[in-house]
Amino acid sequence: MTSTYEKQKKLHFDVMNVGLRAQATAVGFVQLCIELQRAGVLNDAALERIKGAIAADVSLAAPRAISCERYRSEIKDRLDHLFAGEQEVGPADALAFGTTADC
C-alpha cells in the first residue's frame, strides 16, 4: 500500500466517523462559497457557473414525468436562495412537476 492510499483511506474513515454525509458536505460547500464571495475571492460569474453545474447535474436525475428544463430552472432558483445565505429554501416537494419529459 502506498502512503497516499493509506492517507485517503484514513480520511475516508475519519469523515465517516465524524458523521459527514452528502447533505453536510453540501451545506459546508454552500457556506464556503458564501464566505469566498463575501471575501471577494469568488465573483458573481464564478458563483453562477457553480450553481449552473449543480443544477445541470441534479436535473439529470429528474423523474421522467418532469420537464428537464423546468426542473433545472426551479433547481437553479432554489440554489439562488441557498447561496444568498439568508433565505429559506423550503421543502423539495415544492418543486413543480410538469407532464412532459424532454431530457
Rank of each mutant, 00 (worst) to 15 (best):
S3P: 01
G85A: 00
K51D: 09
M1L: 11
D93L: 00
F83K: 01
I66Y: 15
L60Y: 12
F97K: 05
M16I: 14
K51R: 14
N17Y: 06
L47D: 04
T100V: 05
S3E: 15
L95S: 01
G85F: 01
N43D: 15
G40Q: 08
L32R: 11
A61N: 15
C33H: 02
K7H: 05
Q8F: 08
I54C: 11
C33F: 02
L11F: 09
S59I: 11
D80P: 05
R21Q: 08
D44S: 13
R38K: 15
D77Y: 09
A46E: 13
T100S: 03
E86H: 02
A94H: 01
V27P: 04
A24L: 09
V15N: 07
A96L: 00
N43C: 12
Q8E: 10
R21E: 07
D57S: 15
D93G: 01
F83D: 03
N43K: 15
K7E: 11
N17F: 05
C103S: 03
R21A: 04
V27W: 01
D93Y: 00
D44N: 13
Y5V: 13
I34G: 04
D77S: 08
D57I: 14
A55R: 09
C68S: 06
P63C: 01
K7Q: 09
M1N: 14
V41R: 12
M1C: 10
A96G: 01
D80K: 01
L82N: 07
A56M: 13
R38L: 07
I66P: 03
Q31H: 10
A39D: 14
C103E: 07
P63T: 08
G85Y: 02
R78Y: 02
E88P: 02
P91W: 00
D102K: 01
L42A: 04
A24M: 07
A56V: 15
E74S: 05
T100C: 01
L20G: 06
E6G: 03
E74Q: 14
S67F: 06
V27S: 06
L11C: 04
A62N: 14
V18I: 15
S67V: 11
F97N: 03
K9V: 11
A22C: 10
N43T: 13
Q37P: 02
F13Q: 10
A53H: 15
A96V: 03
S3V: 11
F29V: 11
R21C: 05
D44A: 13
D77E: 13
G40R: 05
L47K: 11
Q87V: 05
M1D: 10
